[in-house]
């Protein structure tokens, strides 16, 4: 990868060995196990296994609870990605406007990044706890029969809020960095060309921000898929009645209840392919770099 280097024979292997070993043991081996197991069916006592090709997948696709988890995941990730990107962009644009610098706002808005998803879930759960939460009370006083423990929609709203809240700071930082990398003179040129602030935003700033936005979209989807496990587990446990059971939560839940190893493995494999697809899209896109 570079012209100048060293010629030692053994040393490079020693240097790279720990990384490769850990990757092999904790990544490739389990991943291949997952793929392998997804083709197997085990009998109830775990004594006999049979190779069944794609039967586990077929069963999965016919399983209404899996379909439900899929829909939940789509709704959940769409809502969280849209909300957190939208709000973060709005805030970043306002912060970027500040003549005296965006510094203080940045400090005040970025730290939720450091709050663990599970803790974020607990904070919002406490606010919306039907019997003692302050916001739950507010909703009741407005005539909403708020109860995320029984009402699936309420539960979904609650996890969406918590997940969005946690993600705003991350998106904000990236949008702000993106905005600040747009040369000021470009905006000035547009102003001289006669574009109003709104028009400048949509015809100049936003197109130049689109690589950042796309990057964030993919990262957010991956975030919602995986990192929000803590939020869901802490706030709703996937309930009520599986109303907030995402794909990852289902893998975890099915696996923990034991039994269907093959089915659980098949779920893992499908998730893996989803992430690989997203990563591939990401790379294609970054490669082309859209506007530059």
């Amino acid at each position: 990868m570079r012209k100048v280097g060293f010629n030692n024979k053994l040393l490079p292997y020693l240097l790279i060995a720990p990384q490769i070993a850990i990757t092999a043991i904790f990544f490739y081996w389990p991943a291949s196990q997952a793929v392998w197991q997804s083709f197997l069916i085990q009998d109830a006592f775990g004594t006999r296994t049979e190779f069944v090709w794609f039967e586990n997948y077929e069963v999965l696709f016919k399983d209404p609870t899996y379909f439900n988890a899929f829909i939940v995941t789509v709704v959940f990730s769409t809502a969280v990605a849209a909300l957190s990107l939208g709000i973060a962009l709005l805030l970043a644009v306002q912060a970027d406007k500040q003549i005296h610098g965006s510094g203080p706002y940045k400090t005040l808005l970025m730290w939720p990044y450091a709050v663990a998803p599970a803790v974020a879930g607990v904070l919002w759960l406490f606010l919306f706890q039907p019997s003692l939460g302050v916001l739950a009370k507010l909703l009741r006083s407005m005539g909403v029969d708020w109860n995320p423990l029984l009402n699936g929609n309420h539960a979904m709203i609650l996890v969406i809020i918590a997940a969005t809240w946690k993600q705003i700071s991350y998106n904000f930082l990236f949008f702000l960095a993106g905005l600040q990398s747009i040369p000021k003179s470009l905006i000035e040129a547009a102003a001289i060309d006669g574009a109003s602030p709104m028009r400048r935003f949509w015809t100049v700033i936003f197109p130049l921000l689109s690589p950042t936005a796309f990057f964030l979209l993919v990262v957010n989807v991956v975030y919602v898929f995986f990192d929000t496990f803590g939020i869901i587990d802490a706030v709703t446990h996937g309930g009520p009645a599986k109303a907030t059971e995402t794909l990852v939560f289902k893998v975890f839940q099915d696996g923990r209840l034991g039994g269907d190893l093959g089915g659980s493995a098949a779920q893992s494999v499908i998730l893996m392919f989803m992430v690989i697809a997203l990563t591939a899209i990401q790379f294609k896109y970054i490669e082309r770099k859209v506007h530059y």
Partner: peptide, 23 residues
């Protein structure tokens, strides 16, 4: 070696959770 490492870039532990648990 490089690609072996690179491929793991975006695959979080969540997707291979039980096999890893078993290891």
């Amino acid at each position: 070696a490089f690609w072996t490492i690179f491929v793991t870039l975006m695959l979080p532990v969540e997707v291979r959770i039980y096999p890893t648990y078993k290891v």
